[in-house]
Amino acid sequence: MINSTTLAEELALHGTCAGTTRGVSMEPLFRTNRDVVVIERPASELKKYDVALYRYPDGKYVLHRVIGVRDDIYLIRGDNTFVVERIPKEWVIGVLVRFNRKGKSHSCEERGYKAYSVIWNFLYPVRYLWHRTRMLLGRAKRWLFRKRRTEDGKQ
């Protein structure tokens, strides 16, 4: 997600805008208030792996990655989320062109960044399994802990 209320106006007026990001959904790439994203009004349709800035009808802005392009919608997923959103193309108001991460400036055309985008998406099944496993382990731990406490209570 992104950290400004005037993004749409900035984009409409100048065709560009920049801001910090909020939330964990694009980690490990972007961290809240640490990194800066530079957004441009898209000149054409977005491609797979582009990072789209879009606005929900309720006014909320989100910056997540395109993982598929269909006729009227984009399939979009945050680098650190596990749901696919189906976003109408007209909701998209911007595309990520540059970013400043840990104080270092990068273009989205850089080979390293492009490789990250492809590999991170390719590893999704592994990341998903790891995420599920951690959740199950957490649940098991909580269940065991609760069980132990009731037994203690009986003694």
């Binding site: 400004s4 900035e10 920049a18 801001g19 910090t20 540059r98």
Partner: peptide
Amino acid sequence: FVLESVGGAYLAVAVGEEAVMANALIR
């Protein structure tokens, strides 16, 4: 503050503590 350039314009954005205080974008 971080200074970035795009399409002939320069944009300065507050980061870290400054970003918490004010959500500044300077063109």
